[in-house]
Amino acid sequence: MSTEAAAGTPKSEGWEPNILAFCCNWCSYAGADLAGVSRFQYPPTVKVLRVMCSSRVEPAFILKALKDGADGVLVAGCHIGDCHYIDGNKNAEVRINNTKKALEKLGFDKRLRLEWISASEGLRFSEVIRNFTEEIKKLGQNPVKKPQINADERRLDTSDISVNMRSIANVQGSEVK
């Protein structure tokens, strides 16, 4: 970790980390479900976002989350060999490792984690969250400076989704007009 992230850390009392977790639909999301049903305790620092596969998580999503102030990003998928889409998690591994390398320069590499959690590992899910929260607490708050958002920009932010839908249509070859 570079000195940058450590130096820029604001010290605040009673601060709780804000972690974004991308969980794959077939294993990790079910694992998170099981953790809840079985009443395994874990800190309420995590916001779970369900994706169909861990390889759906683009590096851009992770960078955007960190840019917008998330203290940590967790990507969770099926164990290698168990992927519902055969080798999606292998692709995810390559992607996430590359993103980690890119983040290393900024001192953010410890804020990104890739974990394999199967549907039957509710206990493991709670352990991973507890562990990651502890580590983020040690690292401190995300040092990004928040830009001043005026009303105009906020309006633009909400249109993000439609823009993405348009770009998807673009990739599929239909003409955007």
């Binding site: 940058e4 955007k64 840019k67 900024l106 770009s167 955007v176």
Partner: peptide, 22 residues
């Protein structure tokens, strides 16, 4: 807001992230 940025704007996000750091 750009109509579309290639590669879902990953390079833009990286530039924005580094611009917000000291």
């Amino acid at each position: 807001q750009p109509l579309a940025i290639a590669h879902l704007g990953v390079f833009t996000e990286l530039a924005e992230l580094s611009s917000r750091l000291n």
